[in-house]
């Protein structure tokens, strides 16, 4: 292979991966027009590229999340899809309860809720909210989350429904099981404390048990949890996976206790985002290498950032609701 054709192969692969400058495109264009053989080479390369890309689109597109993002943009509620119908049949005992359509999260996605009569709604719009229910159960809701609960619990079960991220410390009552519904998931407990997030990453829900025991059910799957267990519910696959909770900052949004132990910047950003509800913009990706060991208790974001800035070579500057991070990076 002579140097010339290698040169053009590179030019073509740059073009196909969207890297070409205007000058390169124009050069390629002239070369293609000059000779049919050139065009044939280009065509073959383009086709093998395109086959690869077609497969990539096929394998990596998540239609559920694409649809969620579209339906929230045009402001239509989710249509009663097969999944929802199945859910209603499964929970036919709840049919007597009124069904309301509520707009609860800022991303404008609508969810169905089953709401018993005499209900209250708690929505943590701007910051974390803590409350005590009529049975003595304590609940902390993170920003953007909501809880439906009756003003007093009647019947055999204490039923509430959750959307978002919450911590529960359920008052012990052997006679009345406490039931949390979140989408298709149910958590049943007598008295215990645990963490729930119905909007965890990548279409999952998470439940982490702190003390006591809970029984989880999701469609036909059931699982008992022990303290320290983290259950990850894969919504799309209808599966529950048990893991060990390794996140020391799981409840930092509630307790304001933050612990970093040789933690990389990108994880630190995730924690700070959740605790302080700010966006972070990394101006120089190199700082992602930096790691920090530090603990904070009840500190303001400003105080935390001050410590970070004095520990590593990093600058934090507020810009609107976001904090911009820049710096030289670490080795």
């Amino acid at each position: 292979m002579n140097k010339n054709s290698t040169y053009y192969e590179t030019l073509i692969s740059r073009y196909l991966s969207g890297e070409s400058s205007a000058a390169e495109v124009s050069e390629l264009n002239t070369w293609l027009g000059a000779d049919d053989g050139n065009l044939a080479l280009f065509s073959e390369m383009r086709k093998s590229w395109a086959l690869q890309e077609a497969l990539l689109v096929e394998n990596t597109t998540d239609l559920d999340s694409e649809w969620d993002s579209l339906s929230s943009r045009i402001g239509i509620e989710e249509s009663p899809s097969a999944r929802k119908i199945q859910l209603q049949t499964r929970r036919s005992f709840l049919r007597i309860a009124a069904v309301f359509l509520l707009l609860i999260i800022p991303s404008m996605v609508y969810y169905w809720f089953f709401i018993p009569p005499g209900k209250d709604m708690l929505y943590a719009e701007l910051q974390m909210v803590e409350t005590t229910l009529s049975d003595g159960t304590q609940v902390a809701l993170n920003t953007g989350s909501s809880l439906h609960y009756p003003s007093s619990f009647k019947g055999k079960e204490r039923k509430v429904s959750l959307m978002g991220e919450a911590y529960f410390d359920v008052a012990h009552n052997k006679e009345k099981v406490f039931v949390i519904s979140a989408e298709d998931m149910q958590i049943r407990v007598l008295g215990t404390s645990f963490y729930v997030n119905t909007n965890a990453q990548k279409n999952t829900m998470e439940v982490v048990l702190i003390s006591g025991s809970v029984q989880l059910s999701f469609h036909d799957k059931q699982m008992m949890l022990e303290p320290g267990d983290k259950a990850v519910i894969l919504k799309k696959h209808g599966e529950i996976v048990k893991q060990e909770n390794k996140d020391p900052n799981l409840l930092a949004w509630k307790t304001r206790k933050i612990r970093f132990n040789n933690t990389p910047i990108y994880e630190i950003i995730d924690v700070l985002k959740k605790v302080y509800q700010k966006d972070f913009v990394v101006l120089n990706p190199e700082i992602s290498n930096c790691r920090i060991t530090a603990t904070f208790e009840g500190q303001s974001l400003e105080a935390v950032l001050l410590v970070l800035q004095s520990t590593i070579d990093i600058t934090a500057r507020p810009n609107g609701n976001a904090i911009e991070l820049s710096g030289k990076g670490c080795q």
């Binding site: 192969e9 590179t10 692969s13 073959e44 390369m45 590229w49």
Partner: peptide, 18 residues
């Protein structure tokens, strides 16, 4: 750039029948 070009060259040969 060179590795991408190489990858594409190999793919082109292996996917020739398609």
């Amino acid at each position: 750039e060179a590795q991408m070009s190489k990858a594409l060259r190999i793919m082109r040969v292996k996917l020739a029948e398609f």
